[in-house]
Design a protein around this nucleic acid. Structure first.
Length: 425
DNA sequence: TCTGGGGTCCTAGGACCC
DNA sequence: TCTGGGGTCCTAGGACCC
Protein backbone atom coordinates (compact mmCIF):
# COMPACT_ATOMS: atom_id res chain seq x y z
CA UNK A 1 0.00 0.00 0.00
CA UNK A 2 1.12 3.55 -0.72
CA UNK A 3 0.12 6.81 0.89
CA UNK A 4 -0.41 9.91 -1.17
CA UNK A 5 -0.58 13.32 0.39
CA UNK A 6 -2.22 16.08 -1.58
CA UNK A 7 -1.32 19.56 -0.39
CA UNK A 8 -2.62 22.88 -1.74
CA UNK A 9 0.28 25.19 -2.63
CA UNK A 10 0.27 28.35 -0.45
CA UNK A 11 -3.37 27.60 0.17
CA UNK A 12 -4.79 30.97 1.28
CA UNK A 13 -2.80 32.90 -1.31
CA UNK A 14 -3.96 30.52 -4.04
CA UNK A 15 -7.60 30.96 -2.97
CA UNK A 16 -7.29 34.76 -3.19
CA UNK A 17 -5.53 34.56 -6.56
CA UNK A 18 -8.36 32.60 -8.12
CA UNK A 19 -10.37 35.82 -7.97
CA UNK A 20 -7.39 38.11 -8.59
CA UNK A 21 -5.62 36.55 -11.56
CA UNK A 22 -3.61 39.75 -12.01
CA UNK A 23 -1.66 38.74 -8.89
CA UNK A 24 -0.19 35.64 -10.50
CA UNK A 25 3.61 35.67 -10.19
CA UNK A 26 3.42 38.66 -7.82
CA UNK A 27 4.27 38.66 -4.11
CA UNK A 28 1.10 38.11 -2.08
CA UNK A 29 0.57 37.57 1.65
CA UNK A 30 -2.46 36.74 3.78
CA UNK A 31 -2.73 38.00 7.36
CA UNK A 32 -4.05 36.35 10.52
CA UNK A 33 -7.13 37.57 12.36
CA UNK A 34 -6.96 41.19 13.46
CA UNK A 35 -4.49 41.65 10.58
CA UNK A 36 -1.90 40.58 13.13
CA UNK A 37 0.81 38.74 11.25
CA UNK A 38 1.62 36.97 8.00
CA UNK A 39 0.21 33.44 7.87
CA UNK A 40 0.51 32.65 4.15
CA UNK A 41 3.00 33.76 1.53
CA UNK A 42 3.20 33.27 -2.22
CA UNK A 43 6.40 31.83 -3.66
CA UNK A 44 7.43 35.34 -4.72
CA UNK A 45 6.87 36.71 -1.21
CA UNK A 46 9.01 33.90 0.21
CA UNK A 47 11.73 34.70 -2.29
CA UNK A 48 11.69 38.34 -1.19
CA UNK A 49 12.44 37.05 2.30
CA UNK A 50 9.06 37.57 3.98
CA UNK A 51 9.10 35.20 6.96
CA UNK A 52 6.03 33.35 8.23
CA UNK A 53 4.68 35.04 11.33
CA UNK A 54 6.08 38.48 10.57
CA UNK A 55 3.89 41.05 12.34
CA UNK A 56 2.05 43.08 9.74
CA UNK A 57 3.17 46.40 11.21
CA UNK A 58 6.79 45.41 10.55
CA UNK A 59 6.18 44.42 6.94
CA UNK A 60 6.27 47.91 5.51
CA UNK A 61 9.42 48.74 7.43
CA UNK A 62 11.16 45.54 6.36
CA UNK A 63 10.16 45.79 2.69
CA UNK A 64 9.78 49.49 1.96
CA UNK A 65 10.55 49.26 -1.73
CA UNK A 66 8.46 46.21 -2.56
CA UNK A 67 4.94 46.00 -3.83
CA UNK A 68 3.32 43.21 -1.88
CA UNK A 69 -0.40 42.45 -2.19
CA UNK A 70 -1.95 42.05 1.27
CA UNK A 71 -5.17 40.27 2.22
CA UNK A 72 -6.91 39.88 5.57
CA UNK A 73 -7.80 36.27 6.18
CA UNK A 74 -11.15 35.17 4.83
CA UNK A 75 -11.84 31.72 6.25
CA UNK A 76 -15.27 31.49 4.69
CA UNK A 77 -13.67 31.69 1.25
CA UNK A 78 -10.84 29.25 2.09
CA UNK A 79 -13.28 26.77 3.63
CA UNK A 80 -15.46 26.81 0.54
CA UNK A 81 -12.59 26.57 -1.97
CA UNK A 82 -10.83 23.73 -0.14
CA UNK A 83 -14.11 21.81 0.15
CA UNK A 84 -14.19 21.83 -3.66
CA UNK A 85 -10.60 20.57 -3.79
CA UNK A 86 -11.47 17.75 -1.37
CA UNK A 87 -14.47 16.66 -3.41
CA UNK A 88 -12.26 16.26 -6.48
CA UNK A 89 -9.71 14.24 -4.51
CA UNK A 90 -12.53 12.03 -3.24
CA UNK A 91 -13.38 11.04 -6.81
CA UNK A 92 -9.82 9.80 -7.43
CA UNK A 93 -9.37 7.39 -4.53
CA UNK A 94 -11.22 4.67 -2.62
CA UNK A 95 -10.10 5.94 0.76
CA UNK A 96 -8.94 9.35 1.88
CA UNK A 97 -9.15 11.56 4.91
CA UNK A 98 -8.69 15.23 5.38
CA UNK A 99 -5.71 16.10 7.52
CA UNK A 100 -6.00 19.88 7.64
CA UNK A 101 -7.77 22.67 5.82
CA UNK A 102 -5.49 22.22 2.81
CA UNK A 103 -4.22 18.63 2.94
CA UNK A 104 -5.59 15.13 2.53
CA UNK A 105 -4.04 11.67 2.79
CA UNK A 106 -5.12 8.98 0.32
CA UNK A 107 -4.55 5.24 0.36
CA UNK A 108 -3.34 3.88 -2.96
CA UNK A 109 -3.19 0.24 -3.90
CA UNK A 110 -0.05 -1.40 -5.18
CA UNK A 111 0.76 0.24 -8.46
CA UNK A 112 3.85 0.53 -10.54
CA UNK A 113 5.87 3.75 -10.52
CA UNK A 114 4.53 4.88 -13.88
CA UNK A 115 0.93 4.40 -12.73
CA UNK A 116 1.48 6.23 -9.42
CA UNK A 117 3.13 9.10 -11.21
CA UNK A 118 0.36 9.30 -13.81
CA UNK A 119 -2.28 9.21 -11.06
CA UNK A 120 -0.69 12.18 -9.32
CA UNK A 121 -0.20 14.25 -12.43
CA UNK A 122 -3.78 13.62 -13.51
CA UNK A 123 -5.12 14.63 -10.07
CA UNK A 124 -3.07 17.81 -10.11
CA UNK A 125 -4.49 18.75 -13.50
CA UNK A 126 -8.08 18.07 -12.50
CA UNK A 127 -7.88 20.03 -9.27
CA UNK A 128 -6.36 22.97 -11.05
CA UNK A 129 -8.94 22.85 -13.83
CA UNK A 130 -11.84 22.44 -11.39
CA UNK A 131 -10.85 25.05 -8.78
CA UNK A 132 -7.88 27.07 -9.99
CA UNK A 133 -5.84 25.90 -7.02
CA UNK A 134 -2.45 24.21 -7.61
CA UNK A 135 -1.63 21.18 -5.47
CA UNK A 136 1.55 19.21 -4.81
CA UNK A 137 1.44 15.46 -4.38
CA UNK A 138 3.86 13.11 -2.62
CA UNK A 139 3.58 9.33 -2.76
CA UNK A 140 5.48 6.81 -0.59
CA UNK A 141 5.07 3.86 1.78
CA UNK A 142 4.77 5.91 4.97
CA UNK A 143 3.15 9.25 5.75
CA UNK A 144 6.46 10.83 6.72
CA UNK A 145 8.08 9.75 3.46
CA UNK A 146 5.04 10.95 1.49
CA UNK A 147 5.46 14.31 3.20
CA UNK A 148 9.11 14.30 2.22
CA UNK A 149 8.06 13.55 -1.35
CA UNK A 150 5.83 16.64 -1.46
CA UNK A 151 8.83 18.70 -0.39
CA UNK A 152 10.63 17.52 -3.53
CA UNK A 153 7.51 18.05 -5.65
CA UNK A 154 7.36 21.67 -4.48
CA UNK A 155 11.08 22.39 -4.77
CA UNK A 156 11.90 20.85 -8.12
CA UNK A 157 9.77 21.77 -11.12
CA UNK A 158 10.99 18.63 -12.89
CA UNK A 159 8.65 16.48 -10.82
CA UNK A 160 5.64 18.24 -12.40
CA UNK A 161 3.83 18.57 -9.03
CA UNK A 162 4.09 14.88 -8.12
CA UNK A 163 7.04 13.03 -6.56
CA UNK A 164 6.98 9.29 -5.96
CA UNK A 165 9.34 7.45 -3.60
CA UNK A 166 8.71 3.82 -4.43
CA UNK A 167 12.08 2.06 -4.18
CA UNK A 168 14.87 1.74 -1.63
CA UNK A 169 17.28 3.60 -3.86
CA UNK A 170 14.94 6.56 -4.18
CA UNK A 171 14.22 6.54 -0.45
CA UNK A 172 17.91 6.60 0.45
CA UNK A 173 18.68 9.27 -2.08
CA UNK A 174 15.79 11.43 -0.88
CA UNK A 175 16.90 11.19 2.75
CA UNK A 176 20.41 12.25 1.87
CA UNK A 177 19.05 15.47 0.33
CA UNK A 178 16.19 16.29 2.71
CA UNK A 179 17.29 18.84 5.35
CA UNK A 180 16.66 17.65 8.90
CA UNK A 181 14.40 20.60 9.67
CA UNK A 182 12.12 19.71 6.76
CA UNK A 183 11.26 16.30 8.22
CA UNK A 184 7.62 15.97 9.29
CA UNK A 185 7.65 15.67 13.08
CA UNK A 186 10.86 17.61 13.63
CA UNK A 187 10.12 21.18 14.59
CA UNK A 188 12.34 24.17 15.34
CA UNK A 189 13.47 22.96 18.74
CA UNK A 190 14.45 19.44 17.80
CA UNK A 191 16.02 20.60 14.54
CA UNK A 192 18.30 22.88 16.51
CA UNK A 193 19.24 20.10 18.90
CA UNK A 194 19.98 17.70 16.03
CA UNK A 195 21.98 20.27 14.08
CA UNK A 196 24.03 21.00 17.19
CA UNK A 197 24.96 17.30 17.14
CA UNK A 198 25.96 17.71 13.49
CA UNK A 199 22.96 15.87 12.06
CA UNK A 200 22.06 17.85 8.96
CA UNK A 201 19.90 15.60 6.78
CA UNK A 202 17.23 12.97 7.30
CA UNK A 203 19.82 10.33 6.36
CA UNK A 204 22.04 11.51 9.22
CA UNK A 205 19.22 10.72 11.62
CA UNK A 206 18.44 7.28 10.22
CA UNK A 207 22.13 6.34 10.37
CA UNK A 208 21.85 6.26 14.17
CA UNK A 209 20.36 3.33 16.04
CA UNK A 210 16.79 3.19 17.32
CA UNK A 211 18.12 2.90 20.89
CA UNK A 212 20.10 6.08 20.51
CA UNK A 213 17.09 7.96 19.17
CA UNK A 214 14.96 6.71 22.04
CA UNK A 215 17.47 7.70 24.69
CA UNK A 216 18.11 11.15 23.26
CA UNK A 217 14.48 12.00 22.40
CA UNK A 218 11.12 10.32 22.94
CA UNK A 219 8.66 7.95 21.40
CA UNK A 220 7.56 10.47 18.78
CA UNK A 221 11.05 10.83 17.38
CA UNK A 222 11.33 7.06 17.40
CA UNK A 223 8.18 6.91 15.23
CA UNK A 224 9.65 9.47 12.85
CA UNK A 225 12.88 7.45 12.66
CA UNK A 226 10.90 4.32 11.77
CA UNK A 227 8.76 6.12 9.20
CA UNK A 228 11.84 7.51 7.48
CA UNK A 229 13.17 3.96 7.21
CA UNK A 230 9.95 2.90 5.50
CA UNK A 231 8.13 1.34 8.45
CA UNK A 232 4.53 2.58 8.70
CA UNK A 233 4.22 3.87 12.30
CA UNK A 234 1.62 6.66 12.35
CA UNK A 235 -1.86 5.08 12.20
CA UNK A 236 -4.71 6.97 10.49
CA UNK A 237 -6.84 6.90 13.65
CA UNK A 238 -4.29 9.00 15.46
CA UNK A 239 -5.16 11.82 13.15
CA UNK A 240 -8.95 11.81 12.81
CA UNK A 241 -11.26 11.83 15.84
CA UNK A 242 -11.24 15.17 17.69
CA UNK A 243 -10.87 15.20 21.45
CA UNK A 244 -11.31 18.88 22.04
CA UNK A 245 -12.73 21.87 20.20
CA UNK A 246 -11.52 25.39 20.85
CA UNK A 247 -12.68 28.76 19.56
CA UNK A 248 -10.59 31.72 20.62
CA UNK A 249 -9.48 35.12 19.39
CA UNK A 250 -7.17 37.93 20.23
CA UNK A 251 -9.33 40.99 20.82
CA UNK A 252 -8.83 44.08 18.73
CA UNK A 253 -8.44 46.03 21.96
CA UNK A 254 -7.54 44.90 25.45
CA UNK A 255 -10.31 45.21 28.00
CA UNK A 256 -10.78 45.09 31.76
CA UNK A 257 -14.56 45.17 31.44
CA UNK A 258 -16.47 41.97 32.15
CA UNK A 259 -19.50 43.16 30.18
CA UNK A 260 -17.40 43.75 27.10
CA UNK A 261 -16.14 40.15 27.24
CA UNK A 262 -19.60 38.57 27.54
CA UNK A 263 -20.69 38.71 23.89
CA UNK A 264 -17.29 37.42 22.75
CA UNK A 265 -17.48 34.42 25.05
CA UNK A 266 -21.11 33.77 24.05
CA UNK A 267 -20.15 33.76 20.37
CA UNK A 268 -17.15 31.49 20.82
CA UNK A 269 -19.29 29.10 22.88
CA UNK A 270 -22.00 29.12 20.21
CA UNK A 271 -19.38 28.36 17.56
CA UNK A 272 -18.13 25.43 19.66
CA UNK A 273 -21.69 24.07 19.83
CA UNK A 274 -22.06 24.38 16.05
CA UNK A 275 -18.82 22.51 15.50
CA UNK A 276 -19.94 19.76 17.88
CA UNK A 277 -23.22 19.35 16.00
CA UNK A 278 -21.53 19.38 12.61
CA UNK A 279 -19.40 16.38 13.56
CA UNK A 280 -22.34 14.79 15.41
CA UNK A 281 -20.80 14.84 18.85
CA UNK A 282 -21.55 16.29 22.27
CA UNK A 283 -19.28 17.57 25.03
CA UNK A 284 -19.46 17.33 28.81
CA UNK A 285 -16.84 19.88 29.85
CA UNK A 286 -16.96 23.58 28.99
CA UNK A 287 -14.08 25.86 29.88
CA UNK A 288 -13.13 29.47 29.34
CA UNK A 289 -9.69 31.05 29.38
CA UNK A 290 -8.60 34.67 29.60
CA UNK A 291 -5.07 35.90 28.77
CA UNK A 292 -3.50 39.27 29.18
CA UNK A 293 -1.19 40.63 26.47
CA UNK A 294 2.27 39.02 26.92
CA UNK A 295 3.85 41.72 24.74
CA UNK A 296 2.88 44.41 27.22
CA UNK A 297 5.60 43.87 29.76
CA UNK A 298 4.57 47.06 31.51
CA UNK A 299 1.22 45.55 32.51
CA UNK A 300 0.39 42.86 35.07
CA UNK A 301 0.08 39.44 33.47
CA UNK A 302 -2.42 36.71 34.26
CA UNK A 303 -3.82 33.55 32.75
CA UNK A 304 -7.24 32.69 34.13
CA UNK A 305 -9.28 29.62 33.35
CA UNK A 306 -12.40 27.94 34.73
CA UNK A 307 -14.28 24.85 33.68
CA UNK A 308 -17.68 23.35 34.31
CA UNK A 309 -18.64 19.70 33.96
CA UNK A 310 -22.19 19.16 32.74
CA UNK A 311 -24.31 16.29 34.01
CA UNK A 312 -25.09 15.22 30.45
CA UNK A 313 -22.91 15.80 27.38
CA UNK A 314 -24.61 18.28 25.09
CA UNK A 315 -24.26 20.17 21.82
CA UNK A 316 -27.07 22.61 22.62
CA UNK A 317 -26.01 26.20 21.96
CA UNK A 318 -28.01 27.68 24.85
CA UNK A 319 -26.63 25.18 27.32
CA UNK A 320 -23.02 25.62 26.28
CA UNK A 321 -23.31 29.39 26.16
CA UNK A 322 -24.77 29.55 29.65
CA UNK A 323 -22.03 27.29 31.03
CA UNK A 324 -19.40 29.43 29.33
CA UNK A 325 -20.89 32.61 30.78
CA UNK A 326 -20.71 31.11 34.23
CA UNK A 327 -17.07 30.15 33.64
CA UNK A 328 -16.34 33.68 32.49
CA UNK A 329 -17.88 35.18 35.62
CA UNK A 330 -15.78 32.93 37.83
CA UNK A 331 -12.53 33.26 35.91
CA UNK A 332 -12.63 37.03 35.43
CA UNK A 333 -10.43 39.11 37.73
CA UNK A 334 -10.73 42.86 38.12
CA UNK A 335 -7.75 45.03 37.36
CA UNK A 336 -6.28 43.08 34.46
CA UNK A 337 -6.35 43.98 30.79
CA UNK A 338 -7.36 40.89 28.85
CA UNK A 339 -6.27 40.46 25.25
CA UNK A 340 -7.03 36.90 24.21
CA UNK A 341 -10.04 34.89 25.31
CA UNK A 342 -11.48 31.56 24.28
CA UNK A 343 -13.87 28.70 24.91
CA UNK A 344 -12.83 25.03 24.89
CA UNK A 345 -15.12 22.01 25.01
CA UNK A 346 -13.77 18.57 25.92
CA UNK A 347 -15.14 15.25 27.12
CA UNK A 348 -16.40 14.73 23.59
CA UNK A 349 -18.58 11.71 22.78
CA UNK A 350 -20.55 10.59 19.74
CA UNK A 351 -24.08 11.97 19.81
CA UNK A 352 -25.66 8.59 19.15
CA UNK A 353 -23.97 6.97 22.15
CA UNK A 354 -24.97 9.58 24.73
CA UNK A 355 -24.62 8.41 28.28
CA UNK A 356 -27.53 10.25 29.80
CA UNK A 357 -27.79 11.02 33.44
CA UNK A 358 -31.33 10.19 34.51
CA UNK A 359 -31.57 13.09 36.95
CA UNK A 360 -30.83 15.49 34.15
CA UNK A 361 -32.63 13.74 31.34
CA UNK A 362 -36.03 14.57 29.92
CA UNK A 363 -36.64 12.80 26.61
CA UNK A 364 -39.31 15.18 25.29
CA UNK A 365 -37.33 18.27 26.16
CA UNK A 366 -34.18 16.71 24.73
CA UNK A 367 -35.72 16.06 21.33
CA UNK A 368 -37.27 19.55 21.21
CA UNK A 369 -33.88 21.14 21.85
CA UNK A 370 -32.32 18.94 19.23
CA UNK A 371 -34.87 20.02 16.62
CA UNK A 372 -34.45 23.67 17.58
CA UNK A 373 -30.69 23.49 17.04
CA UNK A 374 -31.18 21.72 13.72
CA UNK A 375 -33.46 24.48 12.48
CA UNK A 376 -31.06 27.19 13.64
CA UNK A 377 -28.16 25.47 11.86
CA UNK A 378 -30.19 25.22 8.68
CA UNK A 379 -31.20 28.87 8.70
CA UNK A 380 -27.69 30.04 9.41
CA UNK A 381 -26.38 27.90 6.61
CA UNK A 382 -28.96 29.21 4.15
CA UNK A 383 -29.02 32.88 5.06
CA UNK A 384 -25.59 33.51 6.54
CA UNK A 385 -23.88 32.70 9.75
CA UNK A 386 -25.46 35.08 12.23
CA UNK A 387 -29.06 35.07 11.04
CA UNK A 388 -30.28 33.44 14.25
CA UNK A 389 -28.33 33.93 17.48
CA UNK A 390 -28.94 34.11 21.19
CA UNK A 391 -29.38 37.58 22.67
CA UNK A 392 -26.19 36.94 24.62
CA UNK A 393 -24.27 36.83 21.35
CA UNK A 394 -25.26 40.35 20.34
CA UNK A 395 -22.50 42.93 20.38
CA UNK A 396 -23.33 46.49 21.27
CA UNK A 397 -23.58 48.79 18.22
CA UNK A 398 -24.95 45.94 16.10
CA UNK A 399 -21.51 44.67 15.25
CA UNK A 400 -21.31 41.18 13.86
CA UNK A 401 -18.99 38.48 15.14
CA UNK A 402 -16.75 38.99 12.12
CA UNK A 403 -16.69 42.78 12.57
CA UNK A 404 -15.59 42.48 16.16
CA UNK A 405 -12.10 41.74 14.90
CA UNK A 406 -10.15 43.82 12.43
CA UNK A 407 -10.13 42.75 8.78
CA UNK A 408 -9.17 45.80 6.86
CA UNK A 409 -8.04 44.08 3.69
CA UNK A 410 -10.63 41.37 3.39
CA UNK A 411 -11.67 40.16 -0.03
CA UNK A 412 -15.30 39.58 -0.93
CA UNK A 413 -16.82 36.14 -0.74
CA UNK A 414 -17.66 35.41 -4.34
CA UNK A 415 -18.37 31.74 -3.72
CA UNK A 416 -20.59 31.88 -0.66
CA UNK A 417 -22.33 35.25 -0.38
CA UNK A 418 -25.44 36.05 -2.33
CA UNK A 419 -24.81 39.74 -2.14
CA UNK A 420 -21.50 39.42 -3.95
CA UNK A 421 -22.73 37.24 -6.76
CA UNK A 422 -24.05 38.76 -9.92
CA UNK A 423 -27.72 37.88 -10.28
CA UNK A 424 -28.64 36.59 -13.71
CA UNK A 425 -31.84 38.00 -15.14
C1' DT B 1 -0.15 52.07 18.29
C1' DC B 2 0.10 47.20 15.88
C1' DT B 3 2.54 40.37 17.58
C1' DG B 4 -2.92 34.16 14.83
C1' DG B 5 -5.90 30.18 15.75
C1' DG B 6 -6.85 25.36 16.40
C1' DG B 7 -5.36 21.12 17.37
C1' DT B 8 -2.50 16.54 19.38
C1' DC B 9 0.67 13.96 22.21
C1' DC B 10 4.19 12.99 25.80
C1' DT B 11 6.44 13.61 30.21
C1' DA B 12 7.47 14.92 34.82
C1' DG B 13 5.95 15.83 39.18
C1' DG B 14 2.56 16.26 42.84
C1' DA B 15 -1.53 14.48 45.24
C1' DC B 16 -3.64 10.75 46.92
C1' DC B 17 -4.66 5.98 48.10
C1' DC B 18 -3.70 1.53 50.14
C1' DT C 1 16.48 8.43 66.61
C1' DC C 2 14.43 5.76 62.33
C1' DT C 3 10.67 8.86 57.38
C1' DG C 4 7.94 2.63 52.50
C1' DG C 5 6.61 1.62 48.08
C1' DG C 6 3.72 1.08 44.31
C1' DG C 7 -0.12 2.48 41.59
C1' DT C 8 -3.20 5.92 39.57
C1' DC C 9 -4.87 10.25 38.38
C1' DC C 10 -4.39 14.99 37.30
C1' DT C 11 -2.02 19.08 35.73
C1' DA C 12 1.31 22.01 33.64
C1' DG C 13 4.60 22.54 30.40
C1' DG C 14 6.81 21.58 26.28
C1' DA C 15 7.12 19.61 21.95
C1' DC C 16 4.91 18.98 17.40
C1' DC C 17 1.51 19.90 13.21
C1' DC C 18 -1.05 23.07 9.79
Amino acid sequence: MFYAIVDCDNCYVSCERVFHPELKNKPVVVLSNNDGCVVARSKEAKQLGVKAGTPFFQLERLFPKQEIAVFSSNYELYGDMTARVMSIIRRHTDYFFRYSIDEAFCHLNEMRFSELKAWGERLHKEVERGTGIPVSIGIARTKTLAKAATWFAKHYAGYRHCCVIDTEEKREKALRVLPIDEVWGIGRRYAKKLQAMNLKTAADLTSYSEGWVQSMFNINMQRTWNELRGIDSVPDEKMTAKKSICVSRSLAEMTNDLNALRPHIANYAARCAEKLRRQQTAASVVSVFLYTNPFREDLQQTFDTREITLLTPTSDTARIVSAAKECLRKAFKHGYYYKKVGVVVTGIVAQNSLQTNFVDYDAAHFSKIKRLNQVVDKMNKLYGRETVTLAAQQYPKKQSFADAIRHEYRSKNPTTRWSDIIILK
